[in-house]
């Protein structure tokens, strides 16, 4: 366990050093930049609340990818599922009006339905025609992109707006806020708890994990692989959809063009770097949120473009994952040598 944490930290450190080099070459002070980054995202309680708020879509899409990858299905459709979830929540919020206590759960369920519907299409294509979800979800991402763009450009278009967006959703459907702390964080933590419980403490979670590690073994052990596949696809779609719904309900309260840009691919990145661990997904989701929030501080104070963070994230993923494999084989080698020595002496 300690070794795992160490490997992750070393990877992150290496990525930061690389980032510092890039900044130093451009004549910027990297220490100042990193200080600003963390100061801007964690400096005051308000800033922490904002960072937490920002982490919601990251953690949820990360969980979606993590559960999928850990159980076998290569669901890369989080971007599309997120958009569909956001669209469903928006449309519900535009036409349904109930007291907040009813409307908020309803919209959350709608957003999950939207996401599950979109991942369900991919699951169905796999189930009926054995089409690989890895490519179908990617294509469905692009289709969802244009479908939602059409939806906010024509049927749900806000009149007189100068770029595609919908009107505001009913105020009863807005996530309550206390100061700068938004309640969507509570929804995220709830979802995290439920997912952790399902994956680690239920029979189906166990079956999923086993199927992810060895599909043949689980089938021979009597696991209904097809049913589990469908369940995982729907669940992970719902998670990504929930992320989309929460973006709308806690953020701009309307669907604006390019609203989900990047969030969802970040989810895949987080899942990869977290190595299919549910808790690590939460940790890395929060960490990436710190980076993304702090990036603006870095840009304002040290004039380092915030896009550098995108590079840094990808580098972290590559280095941590590569480092994990490299260190593990290194440790295995050392272990084997020690055993050899023990035998010969």
């Amino acid at each position: 366990m300690k070794r795992k944490i160490l490997i992750n930290l070393v990877g992150i450190l290496l990525a930061f050093i690389l980032g510092a080099l890039v900044m130093a070459i451009q004549g910027k002070d990297p220490i100042e930049a990193y200080y600003r980054l963390f100061e801007y995202s964690l400096g005051t309680p308000n800033k922490i609340a904002y960072t937490l708020n920002k982490s919601v879509p990251l953690v949820l899409t990360g969980l979606s990818a993590t559960v999928a990858f850990a159980s076998g299905p290569v669901n890369l459709g989080q971007p599309g599922q997120l958009l569909m979830g956001a669209l469903f929540a928006t449309v519900g919020g535009l036409y349904i009006n109930l007291p907040p206590g009813l409307l908020i759960p309803l919209l959350l369920i709608l957003s999950m339905l939207g996401g599950a519907l979109w991942s369900g299409v991919a699951a169905l294509l796999k189930h009926l025609f054995n089409m690989n979800e890895f490519i179908t979800t990617l294509m469905l991402n692009m289709i969802a992109d244009y479908l939602t763009l059409w939806a906010i450009s024509y049927p749900f278009f806000e009149k007189n707006a100068n770029h595609p967006q919908t009107p505001l959703i009913n105020q009863n459907g807005w996530m309550p806020e206390w100061g700068s702390f938004s309640s969507n964080v509570i929804v995220m933590l709830l979802a995290f708890g439920i997912i952790w419980f399902i994956v680690n403490r239920t029979t189906s979670g166990y079956e999923w994990r086993i199927s992810g590690q060895n599909s043949l073994f689980s089938r021979l052990g009597g696991v209904n692989v097809k049913k589990n596949y469908l369940a995982v696809m729907l669940l992970t779609g719902a998670l990504a959809g929930l992320a989309g719904g929460l973006i709308i309900m806690a953020g701009p309260h309307r669907f604006i063009k390019d609203i989900g840009a990047n969030y969802a691919w970040d989810g895949v990145m987080i899942a990869m770097v977290a190595n299919t661990g549910v808790i690590l997904t939460l940790v890395f989701g929060l960490f990436f949120a710190i980076l993304q929030t702090g990036a603006l501080g870095m840009e304002l104070q040290v004039q380092v473009p915030r896009e550098l963070i995108k590079v840094l994230q990808a580098v972290i993923v590559l280095i941590v994952v590569a480092g994990r494999g490299y260190f593990e084989s290194l440790f295995a080698l050392l272990e084997a040598r020690r055993k050899m020595r023990g035998r010969t002496s």
Binding site: Q26, V74, L76, W265, V268, M269, M272, P305, E307, L308, K310, V311, L312, Q313, A314, V315, V317, L318, V321, A322, G325, Y326, S329
Partner: peptide, 27 residues
């Protein structure tokens, strides 16, 4: 060289490329 999973390398590389080009566009 580092024998990392090809799938993860590919995804990471695509995102790196997206990040790098966006960053350089700005820089």
């Amino acid at each position: 060289v580092l024998k990392m999973d090809e799938f993860i390398t590919g995804i990471g590389l695509n995102l790196l490329s997206l990040g790098l080009t966006t960053y350089m566009l700005r820089q």
